[in-house]
Write a protein that binds this DNA or RNA. Structure first.
Lengths: 320, 320
DNA sequence: GGCAACGTTTTTATCGATACAAAGGATCTC
DNA sequence: GAGATCCTTTGTATCGATAAAAACGTTGCC
């Protein structure tokens, strides 16, 4: 018990005793057994982070920020890769239910509004993503519409008149692509430009590979454009590649803008204009929300919806 | 106890009893308490992965593979970011010592040969990286010299005569840059080319930013080259950017090759030639080694040194 | 019938840290 | 000097799962 008091820095331990304990600890090479502590305290000090794949620039960036933020809150982070599959996302929820994690930051991509009831669990969850709004848990999201509108407006201001959007399939559901598409449309409308459905380039998944392949096809089919708003920087990289393959010069013939401001964006040739959603702030907010729920054991204040700020980053791909 | 037997699928449980247990489990919404199990079993089912920063393409790629491999072995992965700092790497070792992890995969960047004794711990550790060879633990490394030699030779075969290497500081110690530099030198020697010290471009850290900045400076100082071997793809991205800034055409005036084959490489303009070290295989090997040591509780066979295979990936940056 | 052998279920003890309570010791007050 | 008060240390029970052993019930065999 006294050892425990020393370890946890409790007061009311005589300095002499503390020293004796510390001495014995070094001598015996004592290490606290975290499992025992977890059992007794009902806490693990670890939160889960479920993302589609850690090897995508955006999620890597996010994970780095979240691990750093968690560290500041004295929490460790265990990562699950869900592959954007709904079942895996639900499985991540189940794992933390086993008290493996004190809470979970879940990046929803596969789950949809229909899965809201699955979030009714007895441990803290923060949703980081766009698929689920108004659920029973805290939600940290990007400023999707506003930022997309700003990005598209920027293209308009640079003189683009046939602005394509490269995005995922537009279902009726809430998702990154739909939200950003809405912002795109708003900017077009404001500018008095018609929204030509021809200009919607739909890709299977938001990867470089799919984006490049699909745009190559569309260009081959005669798609005409002078600007492209890509729903992520990763997609934009595929787009830049496809345009290069087609011999289209950026930004002279087509201006391109992305979304996320991943590290690579600044070093591409041409460097990529984009919107920067302040990942660090979002990460800090998500972890802080989770940590405060963990501390208050569920009975917290109202559920929070947080949409971060953003700023436009203008680089070569839209004319510098 | 019977519940435990049911959960763990032990034999000798009457089907009727099993059903009753299962029924009760659903009815009561029972969840195993992982902390209690960990305490009793002395295992956590979690391994640690300590990398400099998850937000670098190479480590992201690696982490994704390792998480997938660990999943196949029934293990979860908790990630520590060490920022390439020696103290943080040592701290990661201490954490697993607390039985927080069953074992640790440690990507050594800050630690050096002098820290070998720190690896004398009572739990399994696998080193993934280049700084420490012949330590008391298993070691999974890249085929550094051979692959670097092949990459450089490729430049020679494409007609390059003034081949620069862009790498980190070359200390006396074993590290990525030194090892790959050795391979580079060997290829030059074999080709009968002189190793001009002018052609060694040393960057502070292996990032796009530093690589771009440093090469810009060197180009401004009049550096002449017709080929560049970059010790990582990330460095190569910075290099491509700096060359573009200087108005140098790739591959016409300078051919560039990287190392790692990160996803982005194929989509850059120009696409980047590189060597591909089979990340999945390395990850699988590292996890398998760790898992077998965990199962055999230390008393395993001899320490293993594993260097994976590689293949040359020729793309536009060296002439396609 | 009695006993062994086996399959199944229940009991007990344990992993190690810590909350809580009780005990010990010193100091102070009236 | 007795008692109250405080600070410090020690004792005990507990978190929940499980290893090991004991108890229980069947069945089979001589």
């Amino acid at each position: 018990m006294t050892v425990s008091n020393v370890i946890n820095g409790h007061p009311n331990v005589r300095p002499a005793t503390r020293d004796r304990v510390l001495e014995a600890m070094t001598r015996l090479d004592y290490r606290v057994n975290v499992a025992a502590r977890n059992l007794r305290k009902g806490r693990t000090g670890t939160i889960g982070l479920a993302v589609p794949e850690i090897n995508r620039p955006y999620y890597g960036r996010l994970a780095a920020s979240i691990i750093a933020a968690a560290d500041r809150h004295g929490l460790r982070v265990s990562i699950e890769q869900t592959g954007a599959r709904r079942e895996s996302e639900l499985a991540a929820l189940a794992l933390s239910r086993n008290r493996l994690y004190d809470g979970l930051i879940l990046s929803t991509v596969g789950m949809g509004p229909a899965d809201v009831q699955a979030l009714e669990v007895d441990h803290p969850v923060v949703i980081l993503g766009e698929r689920i709004f108004g659920g029973p848990v805290d939600h940290v999201a990007m400023p999707n519409e506003a930022a997309s509108e700003a990005a598209t407006r920027h293209l308009v201001e640079r003189g683009c008149r046939r602005i394509a959007i490269v995005c995922g399939r537009l279902g009726g559901e809430v998702d990154v692509s739909s939200l950003r598409h809405a912002g795109y449309l708003r900017a077009l409308t404001e500018a008095g430009l018609a929204a030509d459905p021809e200009l919607v380039v739909t890709v299977e998944s938001l990867t470089m590979q799919d984006a490049a392949r699909r745009l190559r096809e569309r260009l081959a089919d005669g798609l005409l454009l002078d600007g492209a708003f890509c729903v992520t920087d990763t997609v934009a990289m595929g787009v830049l590649r496809a345009l290069a393959d087609a011999g289209v010069r950026v930004p002279e013939q087509v201006r391109v803008i992305g979304f996320d401001n991943v590290d690579e964006s600044a070093y591409l040739v041409p460097s990529l204009s984009t919107v920067d959603p302040d990942h660090d702030l979002m990460a800090e907010r998500a972890v802080a929300l989770l940590a405060s729920r963990i501390d208050r054991a569920g009975s917290g204040p109202e559920r929070e919806e947080f949409a971060g700020p953003f700023r436009l980053v203008v680089r070569e791909s839209t004319g510098g």
